[in-house]
């Protein structure tokens, strides 16, 4: 009867044009649609549901440059069934894509302010698009700082981008690892310790955070210690997702759906339940 309503659970078929290793357990794929338009528009922070034929689907952030809609990039850490199956796919093979879904980083609120980006582990993937965006309109912002924590030097993602950014004088990059061998010259310790090592104007800044929940908890606390108001802190949450569009109920986080209202939230909006255990 109403069979002409679009089926939002149907993936579109995309071909893998490139696939490369980022670290021992993480890789990036570049995708191109097999039908229709060859452009995929998104806002930094949004995610797609990626489907492996006959295996399953997983929410994965878009990690490429929003100004380059012809190349859809995803960076994936291999942890279980679906991500393993994604890793096995070769160049020329296909993936299903539904999206883009969810909210985005508030670059528009950051104009004229310092922007402090804080990433832990794979949390850098959803933040890379916003770094590209800030750099492409660098004059609109005051300081731009990226603080990044990885487990070991071998776990550092996007080393090619980081090196390039480090050579620029208009963006400050600090990297720390939890543990390293002696030849590591950089910082050792959790990413929150880097906050004390930079200077910024706490009353004119926007903080964007993505990483494990525990890391985000400490980071929010540290920013607040520095005098940052909760309305200026944004973070990206992770919950189990089965649909990405508000039907399955799995991504509930207190009163919000991470797939609809999130994944990027203003801290002020989730403050009351963010710290609640097992919520």
């Amino acid at each position: 009867m109403i069979n002409n309503i679009p089926e939002p659970m149907t993936p579109n078929v995309f071909r893998i044009n490139k696939k490369y290793k980022e670290t021992h357990d993480t890789f990036t794929i570049e995708l191109e649609p097999t039908q229709g338009t060859d452009e995929f528009f998104f806002s930094p922070g949004q995610f797609n549901m990626l489907y492996v034929f006959g295996v399953g689907e997983a929410p994965i952030s878009i990690s490429g440059d929003p100004k380059n809609p012809k190349t859809l990039k995803h960076t994936i850490r291999v942890v279980g069934t679906v991500t393993k199956a994604m890793y096995r796919l070769k160049r020329g093979e296909v993936l299903g894509v539904r999206g883009p879904f969810g909210s985005h980083w508030p670059s528009e609120n950051a104009v004229g302010k310092d922007v402090i980006i804080i990433a832990g582990g794979i949390g850098l993937a959803p933040l890379r698009p916003v770094v590209y965006q800030l750099i492409s309109q660098r004059e609109k912002y005051r300081k731009v700082v990226l603080l990044y924590g990885a487990r070991t030097p071998e776990d550092i993602l996007y080393t090619y981008d980081l090196e390039q950014w480090q050579r620029r004088f208009d963006i400050e990059i600090k990297i720390t690892v939890d543990a390293a061998a002696e030849n590591w010259r950089g910082d050792v310790g959790v990413v929150t310790t880097l906050i004390r090592k930079i200077s910024f104007d706490p009353s004119h800044m926007i903080g964007m955070i993505c990483g494990p929940e525990i890391m985000m908890r400490f980071t929010v606390a540290e920013l607040q210690n520095c005098g940052v108001g909760k309305e200026n802190i944004f973070l990206s949450m992770e919950r189990n997702m089965r649909c990405g569009i508000g039907f399955c109920g799995h991504c509930q986080f207190g009163p919000v759906f991470v797939c609809k209202e999130g994944p990027v939230f203003n801290y002020e909006c989730i403050e009351n339940f963010f710290g609640t255990r097992e919520i």
Binding site: M9, G54, V55, E57, R242, C243, C248, G249, H250
Partner: peptide, 25 residues
């Protein structure tokens, strides 16, 4: 209304299905 989405497949046979099943928190 919670559901889980299950993808099944006879991958060598070239056939896959997606099912939605009632789930519970």
């Amino acid at each position: 209304f919670c559901t889980t989405v299950e993808d099944t497949g006879d991958v060598p046979g070239g056939h896959a299905e997606r099912w939605r099943k009632l789930d519970s928190c």
